[in-house]
Each structure stands twice: as C-alpha cells, then as structure tokens.
Nucleic acid binder design. Structure first.
Length: 804
RNA sequence: GCUGAUGUGGUGGAACGGCAGACACCGGGGACUUAAAAUCCCUUGCCGUCAGGCGUGCGGGUUCGAGUCCCGCCAUCAGCACCA
C-alpha cells in the first residue's frame, strides 16, 4: 500500500470543510433523543486573538461533545461572543473607528482561529451580545428585574476606577485595584443602578446543594455569599430613648460586652451630636477614615484606631451595666447594622482594640488560656461563666438560650446576615447595552415599552468617557432627549449602560433558540435543552459570571419566563496554561505562545492532543514546545500504522486485552476529565501494536474511534483511506468486553514482609483463597526456605505477601 | 488570619491502601545515512563492582503492606480578608 506522508494542513482543512458542508455538528431539532448541552465560556473577542489558554477548555468540551454524539446523544455545543466591553471601546477611541467595526473584525478573527482548531461547534447558533436582536432580550430581562423591584437606583459610594472612568462591582475590585487595568480604586458617591442580588442570597446558597459543581467552586461561592447566623441586640443609650442595634454571631457572649463600636459613618453618631463632648475629634477621625481607600483600610488592618464618643454611654441589656461607645473603621457600615458589641475576651479584633485602649476584658467562656493574653474564640468546646443564667451552658446552648431571652424581653432577635452585596449594575460607558429607562420630571423613572426594544446605541463619532463621571451618552442630546412613554411629555434617557456581565448572564439560554424574535427563547426549546449539562470554565469567574448567571436564571424561573431553576447541572474547571518559564503568560514577560504558529508547525490535531496531554486538566501547567512536538511524533506513528495494516476485520487473540483495556480506559478517563491518562493509554496501545509488528483492521478501527474526539482530522482521514466506511462522526462509540480486560496469566509480585523479592506468572483465575497454593511455586519456595509462614496475603492479580 | 489546593526523577506527570515513577519530554548509546534531519532499536530515579541498599516536603502513628489513611509541622499556589 502506498501511503502519503502525514500532512496535517491538507487533511485538517479538508475535513473542516467536509463537516461544515455536511452540517455534521448542528444540534438536531429531533427531541426524541436524549440531549446533551455542553458549554464553555464564550470568549471576549479581544484584538490580540486567541491564546493557548482558550483551547484548553474548548478542546476538553469538544472531546466530551464528540464522544456524546457517538454515544447517540443529540448534542448542543455552541459558541458565541461576549463582545461588549472596555478594551474594544478604548481601541475604538484611540483609532477612531466604531466599536461595532472593531468587534466584527475581532469576531471574524476568533471564528477563523477556532475553526482552524477543528472544534465541533454548532455555528448555526452563534450568538453575539452586541447584536441588537440579542441585547433586545438583555434589555427585556433588565425591565423584568426593574418591574419586580429587583433593580433600583441608589445614591451610594461606589468603587470608582479613575483610569477607566467607570464604576465597578465589588467583584471587579481585586485587592483594592481595578480588575481590568490595575489602577487604585477610589470611593465615589454616585447614583447607580443596582440589582438586588442579596434577595437571592439564600436561594443561591440552597441551589448549590442540588448541582454537581466541583467542590472548590461551591466552597468559593458559599464563602462569597457569606451566610452567618446570629442575633441582633438593642443597647439603650443611657439617659435617652435612643437605641443602638448591633449584630453578633456570638450572642452567648453578651455578658462579656465591655464596650461598643460603631462605624464612623453611622447615622446614630450624628443623632447624638449634641451630647458628644469631643465632636471635633469625631469629625477629624471620620475625615481621615473617609480618605483611606479600601486598600489602605485593609493594609492597616492590624493596627486598630478609634475615638471614644465622650458624653454618652450604652446600657448592656442583659446586666444593665453602662459601657463606653467608640467609632472605629474596623467596623463596616455596610455589614450587619454597622455597629457591634465588643467582647474582647472572645474576639481577636475586639481584643486588639481593647488592649490598645486599655478596656476591660471579661472572660465569659471558660476553656481557653488566659484571656488577658489572647482572645479565646473556640465555639466547639468551652462553658459559659460570669454570665448569670447562662453559666454552665455550652456555647451552642447559650446561643439558643440568650436568643430566646432577647426575643422574650423585646431587646433583640435571631438574625441571618450575608456578606454578599447588591450588584452595581451601571457603567458610565458607551459600548454596552443601554439601560432601557427614561426619566420624566412628572412620572419619574419609566420603563421603555417592551415593543420599543431594543434601545439602540446612537451612531456617533465621539464617545470618550467624561471626567465628571457621566456616561459618554449623556453628551448626545438627540439620543438623550425623548418623550415619556407614560405622559408623552419631555423626558431623558438613562445614559448609563450595563456592565459586561449582563450579556453573559443569560447567553446559555439563548443558545437553545438563538433566532427567536418573540421571546428570549421559546419555552419548548428551553424545556428540552436546559439546564446546561456540563459547563467548563475558569475559576476566576466563580464569584462573578457564574454567580450572576445563576442569579438571573433563578429570577427568570421565579417570574415564569423559563422552565428551569438552576442554570447548570455540572461545573468543572480547567487549570491555567503558563508560559514555558512557569510564569503566567503575558505580553510584558514575552512568554506568550501563539496558537496559530503552533498549529502551523505541528497541526491542529497535535495541538489539541498536546493541550490535553500536557498534564492534569485542573492544574496549572507550563507550556513545553518539545512536549508539543512529541504529540506530533505520536500522530506520525499513528499515521504509519497504515503501512502495517493487514486484511483482517477482527482483533488478534493477543491484542484482545490491549484493545478492550484501551477502550475502557479512554471511555472512563474522558468522563473524569483525565485526558492525559486517556491519551497515555492510546500511546501504550500504539506501542503494543508496534511491538507486534502489524495491525488488523479491527484493531485500527478501535483506535481510530477512541482517538477521534481528541484528534478528529487524522482519524477521519485514516478511516476514509482505509475504507472503513461512513465518516467517524456518524459511527458509534466503541464498547469493551469485561471478560477480555485481563489476560489468562498475570504477573504478580512476591513480597516477604512487604518487600518485593520476585515476580511470578500465575493464572488470572486465582482468588484470594488460593494463596496457599502459591507456596508450591518454585520461586516462592526458594524465597521462603525453612522459615515458618505466619501469615499469607494474596491479592489476586497484584501480589502475594508472605510474613514469616 | 481564614478557606481551598498542591508538594513524587533533569522536566510534564502516572499510581481502587497492594510491584512507585505508567505515558511523554530532555539526555546517553546504537542502526540506517556520504552527511544531517526524520525514523527505528536500546538506555535513562539515586547509591553500589556485584549482592544489595535508599528513595514520593519533614517528624511521628495505624497496617502484613502507606505517595495514598490518621496526628503534628514546613513550603508553595489560589481565593477571601477588620463581615462582628
């Protein structure tokens, strides 16, 4: 047989065209088949093009999707573009082009790159968040949120990035810096649209119990939502009718509260202004605290500062003692009630503060060391002391008892708090979805009627951000000025746009029915395709996109807009690909690997193979150009199997175990995302064939089917040139025979007291009870010698351990 | 500080409590070549001439048997970080 040399360029382009012409990977409308919806995060089409990180997640889900198709599923594996966003806008401003043009160019480039890697996306369902037919529904969802009281405008301090000239969500601030540009974030009071995600805190938490997310994703979301159970307690202000309410998770320690602390901005401080004798100090402290950025506030965390509010005292409701009140920025106005009771004996921060200010430390939970030297915070052990009717109780019992007491006496109650904050949803930017509301002097905020959606962006030349913090849209009079849908009078459009997270918060729903113009997607399509069966993506989105989109999905379910409660059934995560120097890839380090160049050198199949073989899928791995070449070498070896092909449709007796073992290993490992060991199993199989000197058609077919999801082009080409029949994408996933996974004879290790002394061949049929028989084996006899066998452990197929 | 993860050859990494280092990369040797590349074969944890010994971050423990389980440390990475 005359075999051509392996030419990936040629065969890869050939098959990519074949698949496209045959619509091979389009999801079928046939709903009688079981469905599989595989999803990966749609990319932001940046000007830089794809990097080698993208294909890791894509290839993994492509492999799973291709396997599912062979297993008989109706598969939806879509791709789209999360195309609104700052870099495009900045590039457009700098180069004086419209962001829509930049987006189109970038999208085309991304699409070409993805197609060149041979992903089996259903391109007929491509979505683009900047397409008016798409963002019409993003705006529609916003209106539903608004109508259900889930969107509100609020005058509040926001995280402001002075470089992007834009407000940021809490989730977008990393260590006090802007997630995108790295500039120091400052606080700025602005009127912003907010989404009431806090109302869904409990549902977002509960939903995690019903889904199959990898544990670290669940943990991170739980921590971010930050539920805590405790109580609110009222402390009377002495000689007045006023009360100061605190939140505590340790109501059991109420007898140990020796002072109170309120956040500097707390309203009660102003209400008591006339009675505070050191008001100047209070003002000075407040101003100093306000000037600190969030970053400084955390940096100085260990060093507690504060000012006592002189002239006023609070009364501890449980024992009537009067105690001093301080302001300090270690208490946050945004959490709980913005005020705390301080129990220095059992809280580290209170202890630090009390020590610095010479305040009394009273032990109320016994069991620790000296509380004058260190706070005792253990809640599991420890017994209440110095606490009146709580004495002798455990912490858990005391919590229950005191909470009941507080409720009965009308001075407090049980309370659940969350760390989760509402979502700042306004951006003062041009390249985003306009918020579909107008402001009318007479009617207030009025939603744009749904029939008038989408609200399009005005087509103008100038959309630079303003220094005043207003959106660039605010300068475009013809767009801003409109009529009130309610009274018909003059009104102005909202000029803020939505954050980039808006479009990505529901895109998975759109894939079910991407061309629908009557709904965000038709009910029956959603009912069939959703939820997403398997969603793979980056850990960096755990508390951003993944949480936001779960929130939108839960909300849409609650208002009856969609049939599914949780968005994603299963979530997994891939590790990052690092540069060859083991550092995060970045332009400035100069360690970025370009996928186009790699594919030009070794081909898309080898590229895909290496992306999956390089290491454990969920761990960060440095790129190795040599390793990638090794994968090309493997494919060359596979290609040359054609020269060794013999006319035999079956599997040779001696190859039965290798073939069945490979099929089992590959089948199982793909499901566990252990792609590296699945590939290793195929390599081992190819090595076995080379050792045997030839390959039958039956053996080669098995290999082609197993390898196809990872290296689809070369396998289709070989399948065709060997005359194996219709293309692989129309075939079925191979099955294995349980009875043919082990040979008749197996090698086991012989150990004496746990140390390996020899290896012998024994029949595979031996069971654990047959250990005695092995003492008759010549090798074993020699090892044991005259010694008395005291114990014998035989693990069939593995080892014989003799204790003597 | 809290939460989670990780620690195995020169490198990436394999190992249901059962033969540590599968599968690769790099390196070494050989074959084929006028030569090189490609390819094929052998070799490749460390120490030792052999016998053998030592080896999975460190120290203990459980077990016939521990990379794996338990206790106590150390280091690295990621996320959160004054959340009462």
């Amino acid at each position: 047989m005359n075999i051509k040399t392996y030419n990936p360029d040629e065969i890869e382009l050939k098959w990519q065209k074949n698949w496209a012409d045959a619509h091979a990977f389009e999801a079928k409308s046939d709903k009688s088949k079981p469905k599989f919806f595989g999803l990966i995060e749609f990319p932001y089409p940046s000007g830089a093009g794809l990097h080698v990180g993208h294909p890791r997640s894509n290839t993994a889900m492509d492999i799973i999707s291709r396997k599912r198709r062979l297993e008989g599923y109706n598969v939806l594996f879509p791709m789209g573009w999360d195309a609104f966003g700052l870099p495009t806008e900045n590039f457009a401003i700098k180069n004086k082009v419209h962001p829509a043009k930049v987006t189109k160019k970038n999208v085309d480039r991304f699409r070409d790159q993805l197609q060149r890697i041979g992903f089996s996306f259903d391109w007929s369902r491509e979505v683009d968040t900047t397409d008016p037919n798409y963002f019409k529904w993003t705006q529609w969802i916003f209106l539903q949120l608004y109508k259900h009281g889930m969107a509100y405008k609020s005058e509040m301090p926001v995280n402001w990035c002075p470089s992007c000239k834009c407000g940021l969500a809490n989730e977008e601030v990393v260590a006090g810096k802007c997630e995108r540009c790295g500039a120091e974030v400052i606080r700025r009071v602005k009127s912003q649209w907010m989404l009431r995600i806090t109302k869904y805190a409990q549902k977002l938490l509960d939903g995690l119990d019903d889904v199959d997310f990898i544990e670290k994703v669940k943990t991170q979301q739980r921590n971010w939502i930050g539920r805590s159970e405790g109580a609110e307690v009222d402390f009377k202000i002495a000689d007045s009718d006023m009360k100061l309410r605190v939140y505590t998770t340790r109501p059991d320690t109420l007898f140990g509260a020796t002072y109170m602390v309120v956040a500097p901005e707390h309203a009660t401080v102003d209400a008591l202004k006339d009675r505070i004798t050191n008001w100047d100090d209070v003002i000075a402290y407040r101003e100093a605290a306000a000037k600190k950025s969030d970053f400084e506030r955390t940096e100085l965390a260990k060093d507690k500062t504060g000012v006592e509010l002189k002239g006023i005292r609070a009364i501890n409701p449980v024992n009537g003692k009067d105690i001093p009140i301080f302001i300090s920025d270690y208490v946050l106005v945004t959490y709980g009630t913005g005020a705390i009771m301080a129990v220095p004996a059992h809280d580290t921060r209170d202890w630090d503060f009390a020590t610095k200010f010479g305040l009394p430390i009273i032990e109320v939970v016994a069991g620790g060391e000296d509380v004058q030297k260190e706070a005792y915070t253990d809640v599991a052990e420890g017994v209440l002391v110095n606490s009146g009717f709580l004495n002798g109780l455990s912490v858990a019992e005391a919590k229950k008892s005191i909470t009941q007491w507080l409720t009965e006496n009308g001075v407090g109650e049980k309370k659940v708090n969350f760390k989760l904050r509402d979502w700042v949803f306004s951006r003062q930017r041009y390249w985003g979805e306009p918020i579909p509301l107008v402001y009318c002097e007479k009617c207030g905020w009025v939603p744009v009627p749904e029939k008038d959606l989408p609200v399009l962006l005005p087509d103008v030349d100038n959309y630079e951000p303003t220094d005043s913090g207003e959106s660039p849209l605010s300068k475009i009079d013809f767009w801003v000025n409109t009529t009130c849908p309610c009274c018909g009078g003059a009104a102005k459009r909202e000029t803020d746009t939505m954050p980039q997270w808006a479009g990505s918060s529901w895109y998975f729903l759109r894939y079910a029915d991407p061309h629908c113009d009557t709904d965000l997607a038709r009910w029956e399509e959603l009912a069939y395709w959703l939820p997403v069966d398997w969603y793979n993506g980056g850990m960096e989105h755990t508390t951003l996109h993944l949480l936001y989109s779960r929130f939108w999905n839960l909300f849409l379910y609650d208002i009856g807009a969609i049939p599914n409660k949780e968005a994603y059934k299963k979530r997994t995560s891939h590790g990052m690909i690092l540069g060859p120097d083991n550092q995060k890839m970045s332009k400035s380090r100069g360690n970025v690997i370009n996928p186009d160049e790699t594919i030009a050198e070794i081909g898309a199949d080898a590229f895909r193979l290496y992306e999956m073989f390089m290491g454990a899928f969920d761990q960060a791995i440095p790129w190795s150009t040599e390793g990638a070449r090794g994968c090309r070498r493997f494919l060359e070896r596979v290609w040359r199997l054609q020269e060794m092909l013999v006319e035999d449709e079956g599997v040779r007796k001696e190859m039965e175990v290798p073939v069945n073992a490979m099929i089992k290993k590959v089948s199982d490992d793909i499901e566990r995302m252990k792609f590296n060991t699945a590939i290793a199993a195929m390599m081992a199989f190819v090595n076995d064939i080379y050792t045997s000197g030839k390959v039958t058609r039956g053996e080669l077919k098995a290999l082609m089917l197993c390898l196809n999801p990872v290296a689809p082009h070369i396998t289709e080409e070989m399948w065709e040139s060997c005359g194996f029949g219709e293309p692989i994408y129309t075939q079925s996933w191979p099955t294995y025979d349980e009875n043919k996974l082990v040979a008749d004879e197996v090698e086991i290790a012989v150990q004496i007291k746990g140390k390996v002394r020899a290896r012998i061949m024994v029949p595979a049929s031996l069971t654990a009870a047959d250990g005695e028989k092995l003492l008759e084996n010549e090798t074993v006899k020699k090892l044991v010698g005259d010694a008395v066998v005291r114990k014998l452990i035989f693990v069939p197929g593995r080892l014989l351990n003799i204790v003597c």
